[in-house]
Design a binder for these strands. Structure first.
Lengths: 337, 337
DNA sequence: TTGACAGATGGGCGCGCTCCCACGAGTCTT
DNA sequence: AAGACTCGTGGGAGCGCGCCCATCTGTCAA
């Protein structure tokens, strides 16, 4: 409303008494500019309060300096907020370093997920960060086909071909169950994650591995799949207690499911950790506030986000090759074991 | 990697045997196109898998169909995730309806906050949603100066001139304290929010109003300011108990501070609600999981986000005038009172 | 002095799109 | 039958920028 429109590169050039190209060079940090010209251009930029139009720049460079973070809304509900909040913090922090914008896309349903590829096709972003991919998800493949750099949080399966950053799910789960075995527990149930996700399968594999190591048979009877929700944990716990009333420990593949399991155990009058020891996975804020405080496997979520963003930036800005990383997890012992 | 570049409007025009303008018209839904031409264009679009380049479009229309959501990182930490998660869900949902992208900006410090105006000046977004503004914040003013449509979550003060969506903080707080008074409590302390934020002042005002209504004096001794964190709630509770050991209720201006207060009360051996009744504000997931479950004032956070997004869209897309809305709050009685 | 060369500079062009406006064909009115 | 109008249509211009390449200036060696 001040009357005059925003200055363009042309305005600045005129003001500084140089050509447009020289202004462009100064703005983009080329060193093929005399000290004198540079000074005049910088002065003009300051006087006019010039800011380059990134849309125009994007049109010619074919880059937007923005990446999309795609999160399935179903997963962002039901108390798994801490995971996404931490992830977003990590991603955002790393992107800020490289002056890249973050487009957040909460995807409600499959229809929106499909529409998303189209949206992405309009070239509004240079790359995509994908969270919570199920094994049969088509989205990663479509993005790859479109030649859009993609980094996954977690992998679809052990043979993943795209870039990804993963937590050491199997290792963490092994450590958790090993801890339970070391505490003398022998009938260790597990509430696994969804088995159509690698994270679910890997944590379950860790449960098996620890049993093998210890020479204790892992009974299939003691396995019940959950869906990473509190209600799912409660339901699974109920089923497990019906099938194996004498179980003495539970490894839940997420803190939230552990919370559900704790609730069901209390409802049935089982003492934790007296009768049944409980271990979760993630070490979200939740874990410190349960009763009793939850032993769990810490997952470096914020660092996971940060690493994903860095890898994507490396790819989009420096043409780095595919990268696949696994971040270490760590057992945090509290009072539920 | 398929060899041929993405089709442009020109490619489509050639394929359909029409001019570029006709294609543009079809894409943008103009009705000045014959049925025949439209059909041919649509066919060509489908065959070529054409998607308009939104960057190029943005250059000429000077619109990006993206808005920024600015969140101070300090506030997004420390367990207030549920608030932001819900807010983001609401915003995201409403934006999806109008095919608008969401740029998420977590701002770490004041320096980044300043840099943000510059970033916004590059015209990457059509408007801005601002959360957690303190009364003296310069950002809203700068955005207004730049002529960038802005909608605040909450207002800076009672005389706010920008568009905003607010919860009925005073009304909710009044209801909460009225409820405590109705339960026979007479020495009702309050852990207020920061007093440099309208939300802090309004909820405190509600505490006063309820006292006046009931003809019970509100003692300044019973007021301690917190910072919306759990630790702040704990600290404030400690101070209050020192000053007024005989208090029989606490109204905390946020659930998280109520959680801190609960912890301190337990530490000092006070029974809730026997000795001291506690009420929070927000009704986040936290409130259902405290021991005992927390009576609190429900704030429609997701709707707040949705409304903010709708108002901003109205302004950017239809030139709607400034709007200021207050959403109702609702007392949710649980076992802490 | 002259040619070769490196450094500095700026104009033209095009990125893909929307919008203005001119134009042709058909319809209606007088 | 001719003007007035409507409807469809398409080419040109221009959005603000980066990059190619031609041009210009000054320096150095022969």
């Amino acid at each position: 409303m001040t009357g005059n429109r925003r200055p363009t590169i042309k305005t600045v050039a005129a003001r500084a008494g140089v050509g447009r190209t020289t202004v462009s060079r100064v703005v983009n940090g080329s060193d093929l500019v005399s000290a004198d010209a540079r000074a005049r251009v910088l002065a003009a930029i300051k006087e006019l309060n010039y800011v380059p139009n990134s849309v125009a720049r994007g049109l010619v460079t074919n880059r937007t300096n923005a990446v999309a973070l795609v999160i399935p809304e179903s997963e962002s509900r039901l108390g798994s907020e801490p995971f996404f909040a931490a992830l977003i913090r990590g991603v955002s922090g790393a992107l800020a370093e490289s002056r890249t914008q973050l487009q957040l896309m909460l995807v409600r349903d499959q229809a929106e997920r499909d529409q998303l590829t189209e949206s992405v096709a309009t070239r509004r972003v240079d790359g995509v960060l994908l969270v919570s991919v199920r094994s049969e998800d088509r989205l990663p493949g479509m993005l790859q086909e479109m030649g859009l750099p993609t980094v996954l949080a977690g992998r679809r399966d052990a043979g993943e071909r795209l870039s990804y950053v993963n937590s050491d799910n199997a290792g963490g789960a092994t450590a958790a169950v090993r801890h339970l075995l070391g505490g003398g527990r022998r009938r260790i149930a597990t509430v696994s994650g969804p088995l159509d996700m690698d994270v679910g399968r890997s944590r379950l594999a860790g449960w098996r591995t620890a049993h093998e190591e210890a020479g204790v048979p892992a009974e299939e009877l003691l396995l019940e799949a959950g869906d990473f929700t509190e209600e799912g944990g409660r339901r699974a716990m109920r089923l497990l207690l019906e099938r194996a009333p004498d179980l003495d420990a539970v490894f839940a593949a997420s803190d939230l499911m552990a919370v559900g399991a704790l609730a069901e155990l209390r409802r049935q009058g089982r003492q934790v950790p007296g009768d049944v020891a409980v271990v979760g996975f993630e070490d979200s804020v939740l874990a410190r506030h349960t009763d009793p405080p939850l032993t769990t496997v810490r997952q470096p979520v914020e660092e996971l986000g940060r690493t994903m963003a860095r890898i994507l930036t490396d790819i989009t800005q420096h043409g780095a090759p595919r990268q696949q990383l696994t971040l270490p997890t760590e057992l945090v012992v509290r009072e539920s074991t």
